[in-house]
């Protein structure tokens, strides 16, 4: 249970980090909060030749609001997002989701960029990024590009990022006026990874829904945006029958797999339950806010 031997570098700038990454290619691994990577090193599931520690790259952390977007630096810790007023004002679901991640000591170190790059299908940040249609910024020595979160996750623990790219920021849209969110997670104990989770937002005008977005985590190879839900709930007042129809539609399109935590069938059923709860919560919160 000890890490393997590796070389260690601690660049102070993003430029140096990118250069090291391009020189060492797939033999190098980036170290962010270390809350997923160090367990893998201890278990010898990862054996990099070089570890590039990004913790001193100051330009990678921070939360900034501009042009209706909330830009979060990759190295921003879960705990900072849980307690940030700026983030809570722009998109309250961020603090709500952050609380569910592991435990205090994990949140004090773990980073949003690390979580999104790691791409655990049950993790909160990937779910939120897909639910809210966030964009992921990637940099290499050659270029900067942004990818929609809905296209970034390509499978369990697999993403569209290249071996020479560093995830530098995540950009969430700010929550629109007259909208409400629902965030529901099923896990055995506080701090566990979700067995299934659902996150969504509904927008209303004059008591009717004018748009909805919802995604489910833990019930497929990646967090799944359920596009049908928008069609089903748009125009409604969030009546029970509509919510139930949306939940059934979600359960139909998911392709969960079973593991020691839960069977595939249980996950599918729970996904429907959590969609129901999340939509009810979202509709109720708009009503409460207006």
């Amino acid at each position: 249970m000890k890490p393997p031997n590796f070389l260690y570098a601690r660049p102070d700038t993003l430029e140096d980090a990118l250069r090291l990454l391009s020189e060492h290619g797939t033999g190098a691994k980036l170290l962010a909060g270390g809350q997923s990577l160090v367990p893998m090193l201890n278990l010898r599931m990862a054996e990099p030749k070089l570890l590039i520690d990004m913790n001193r790259v100051a330009e990678l952390s921070g939360i900034e609001r501009e042009n209706g977007k909330l830009r979060i630096g990759a190295l921003t810790r879960h705990r900072a997002l849980e307690t940030s007023r700026e983030a809570a004002q722009a998109e309250p679901m961020i603090a709500r989701a952050a609380r569910e991640i592991g435990h205090l000591a994990i949140r004090n170190r773990g980073t949003i960029g690390g979580s999104i790059a790691h791409a655990d299908p049950s993790a909160e940040w990937p779910l939120l990024a897909v639910a809210l249609d966030a964009r992921v910024e990637l940099r290499s020595t050659a270029r900067t590009r942004t990818v929609a979160a809905r296209e970034f996750f390509t499978g369990p623990f697999t993403t569209a990022a290249g071996a020479d790219e560093i995830l530098t920021a995540v950009e969430f849209p700010c929550a629109p006026q007259q909208s409400g969110f629902g965030f529901q997670e099923l896990c055995r104990r506080p701090g566990d990874f979700a067995i299934v989770a659902a996150a969504g937002r509904v927008r209303m005008r004059d008591g009717r829904c004018i748009g909805a977005t919802l995604a489910i985590g833990g019930a497929d190879a990646t967090p799944r945006h359920i596009a049908e839900i928008d069609r089903i709930v748009a125009g409604s007042r969030g009546e029970d029958a509509v919510v139930r129809e949306a939940a059934a539609a979600a359960a139909r399109v998911l392709d969960p797999s079973g593991d020691i935590h839960a069977s595939a069938e249980y996950r599918r059923k729970m996904a429907a339950v959590l969609v129901t709860r999340a939509l009810r919560e979202a509709f109720a919160s708009v009503a409460a806010n207006s």
């Binding site: 809350q35 160090v38 004090n108 170190r109």
Partner: peptide, 8 residues
């Protein structure tokens, strides 16, 4: 507070 087993 941090995990000393997950920090180098």
């Amino acid at each position: 507070s941090v995990r000393a087993c997950l920090m180098l």
